[in-house]
Design a protein around this nucleic acid. Structure first.
Length: 692
DNA sequence: CATTTATAAATTTTT
DNA sequence: TTTATAAATG
């Protein structure tokens, strides 16, 4: 009995929605109505009588989950689709482990560390083991965290991973192994899980170590979005959850696989039919998003990929405008060109939020941001948000974590060093003295022993009097926050008061840093509890500058800036892709092997396929080298190698910005001319700062 | 001996 | 702008 709303679907989409029992794989090209189709399937399942709380919808971001569930709600005309389990793998694991983790030795009040925290702990251990002071240099903390995460997520042997992905560390495998051993033990002692643990323990749970049988039967239907970007560990979890003939629906597109750095592997999608025998395969190939010329350009890019992408996207949307490849003189010229185009489109009726500027790395938009601010064009930036990485924010969060989990030694270690006169060595002694270690013993009831020790009036470890008084100030702040019924925002406020003098002493621009803590307070005011706040902060961190701006002013229009990674799954009427130069796309950091380069190609493909009506690709001819050289040292860029082949170029209309034209007409022979062109460009950009 | 200060170097993408 | 290493200071 098909519901009336199914009329709006095409045949393949309907097939997905109406699929009954058993495994299903949907190969959904870009813009083929994937969101609607998944939402439709959820709606259909619920209308067919499946209990919402027995449906699990795994998505790549929380935002995607919200979007799909609200669309499902609209389709079913019910207020909400009940309690469908929706979210990222990590968020769902978090919920499950708090409820069912005990048999695995997990205390339900565990805290979650992000990758930066993990790196800090690795660093601590690295020093403890004396690996940092040897004649040969040992991998640094971020490298260690990356190696660990890759090994765990890919389920490969350490030596193998190091050899393949970190060959320069190959001599240090033994040391790395010893760090990892202690790292794992330490996390357990401190009742802390990292991102990878969330998945590892979920797998253990699903595999039946604990109460697997109960958990396997927790869901009648599992749906997974962006399956091409899942890793081996995640695929394992799914297969434990569903069994080889279970009701699992995965949706993905191998042409859009862009997360191999997180150990994602396209093999998951390619081998799905083997893993789930008898799986039905449905392809969605009609693109509803882009005009034909745009799709033709995107197809031309991906066709050159040596890997097989067995589908051809087609579109019925006519369009008379080819995508434009805009050659600019330099970054400043590029920023100028983008601003002008953006405003042009706004004049013609496309609001700013209907347009996006996409780029490979977060800092690629730096210059553009300055120019936008100068022209009073509001914007919101997605991706690469360093808010939580900033030292001062981490300071505040560390205090919150201590309150939540007094055994979180990493947070203690960080916090204690805020005190004037306490460095790594003293902090370590203090942590020891405080007895920050849980082992397997349950937490004693009542106020934490740690807090009691810090409360004013209690004898402390031998230390200079000024350190004592600062410790007492810290204790007082913690005690105030730990009081009954203090809302999270008030706790952040109290922490801010404690940190104010610390920042004055430590940082050169304390006022700005304190302002960030006000934003943190804003954020906290939306959370019902401290525990929830901390967890949300690590599992669903603010993803855009807009998230931080407090209550959204809906009438305000703003341009979207986004990394290509963060733009996944989104679409805009007008898309501007900047920095289409070799070294940017593909990134210089990713030219190690053919596989990495292919991923960069897919990245460009993802960027191009975000556009509905108009697509612009910008290429600056010249880059000025950054800080040191005081004279205008510059280098010439090559167009991205993915755009050079004739089959691709012919899909674009090429245009050269006036400033760049001169440069191309009089190429390279005359140094004077070059530098005069360079000076002219600088003068132009300076002139723009004072005039107009 | 531990901490602070100075100096140099590096800097993708994200749950 | 942050982070590792070296030298200087308490």
């Amino acid at each position: 009995m098909p519901s009336p709303w199914m009329e709006q679907l095409n045949e393949s989409q309907r097939e997905v929605v109406a699929h009954g029992q058993g495994p299903l794989i949907v190969v959904a090209g870009a813009g083929t109505g994937k969101t609607l189709t998944i939402a439709g399937r959820v709606a259909h399942l619920i209308e067919g009588g499946v209990a919402p709380e027995r449906i699990l919808l795994l998505t790549f971001t929380r935002r995607a989950a919200r979007e799909m569930l609200s669309r499902a709600a609209r389709l079913t005309q019910r207020p909400t689709p009940g309690n469908v389990w929706g979210g990222t793998f990590h968020a769902v694991a978090n919920r499950l482990l708090r409820a069912y983790g005990r048999p695995l030795g997990i205390q339900p009040d565990f805290t979650v560390m992000d990758q930066a925290d993990a790196a800090d702990l690795m660093n601590l251990i690295r020093e403890e083991l004396g690996l940092s002071e040897r004649e040969r240099r040992f991998p640094r903390k971020d490298t260690l965290a990356a190696v660990y995460s890759r090994t765990v997520n890919a389920g490969r042997r350490l030596a193998e991973v190091v050899e393949a992905d970190f060959p320069w560390c190959r001599e240090e495998v033994d040391g790395i192994r010893s760090v990892f051993r202690r790292y794992a033990r330490r996390k357990r002692e401190h009742n802390v899980l990292d991102y990878d643990d969330l998945l590892l323990y979920w797998r253990a749970l699903a595999a039946g170590q604990g109460l697997g049988s109960r958990l396997t039967r927790l869901f009648d239907h599992v749906l997974v979005d962006e399956y091409q970007d899942t890793n081996t560990l995640q695929a394992d979890i799914l297969s434990h959850l569903c069994g080889p003939t279970g009701n699992i629906t995965v949706v993905g597109d191998d042409a859009q696989a862009i997360y191999s750095f997180r150990s994602a592997t396209v093999r998951n999608i390619l081998e799905f039919p083997q893993r789930y025998a008898g799986a039905r395969i449905v392809r969605l190939e009609q693109n509803y998003r882009s005009t034909r010329p745009i799709l033709a350009a995107a197809n031309a890019v991906i066709e050159l990929s040596p890997e097989r992408h067995v589908k051809t996207l087609w579109s019925e949307r006519p369009g008379d405008r080819s995508p434009l490849l805009m050659t600019c003189l330099d970054e400043a010229d590029q920023s100028d060109a983008v601003c002008r185009r953006v405003l042009e489109h706004r004049e013609r009726g496309v609001p700013l939020h209907g347009q996006a500027v996409l780029f490979r790395a977060a800092h690629h938009s730096d210059l553009l941001e300055i120019e936008l601010a100068r022209r009073n064009i509001p914007f919101v930036k997605y991706g690469g948000l360093k808010f939580l990485e900033a030292a001062h924010v981490k300071d505040a969060v560390a205090l919150l974590r201590i309150l939540e989990n007094p055994f979180d030694a990493v947070s203690w270690f960080r916090t204690l060093q805020l005190i004037d006169g306490v460095g790594p060595a003293a902090a370590r002694r203090l942590v020891e003295w405080l007895g920050v270690r849980r082992g397997d013993a349950p937490v004693p009831p009542g106020p934490s022993p740690v807090l009691r020790l810090l409360a004013p009036g209690t004898p402390g470890p031998p230390s200079p009097p000024d350190v004592r008084s600062q410790l007492e100030a810290l204790g007082a702040a913690l005690a105030d926050c730990a009081g009954e019924g203090v809302p999270p925002a008030a706790q952040v406020e109290r922490i801010r008061r404690f940190l104010a003098p610390v920042f004055e002493r430590t940082y050169s621009h304390p006022a700005e840093r304190l302002r960030d803590l006000e934003q943190l307070e804003q954020l906290a005011s939306r959370s019902p509890s401290r525990a929830r706040f901390i967890t949300d902060l690590t599992l669903d961190p603010p993803s855009s500058t807009g998230d931080l701006a407090g209550p959204p002013s809906l009438d305000e229009d703003y341009l979207i800036l986004s990394t290509i990674h963060s733009a996944k799954g989104l679409e805009w009427d007008v898309v501007h892709v900047i920095h289409a130069a070799d070294g940017m796309i593909p990134s210089d950091m990713a030219t190690g092997g053919p596989e990495e380069i292919e991923e960069e190609r897919r990245l460009l493909y993802v960027a191009l396929t975000r556009a509905r009506n108009d697509l612009y690709v910008y290429f600056p001819l010249r880059y000025y080298r950054r800080p040191r050289g005081h004279e205008d040292a510059h280098s010439y860029a090559q167009l991205s190698r993915f755009l050079i082949p004739a089959t691709v170029r012919s899909r674009f209309e090429s245009r050269v910005a006036p400033l760049a034209e001169e440069l191309i007409d009089e190429p390279l022979q005359d140094e004077d001319q070059l530098s005069s062109a360079g000076h002219r460009a600088v003068e132009m950009s300076l002139a723009r700062l004072w005039e107009g």
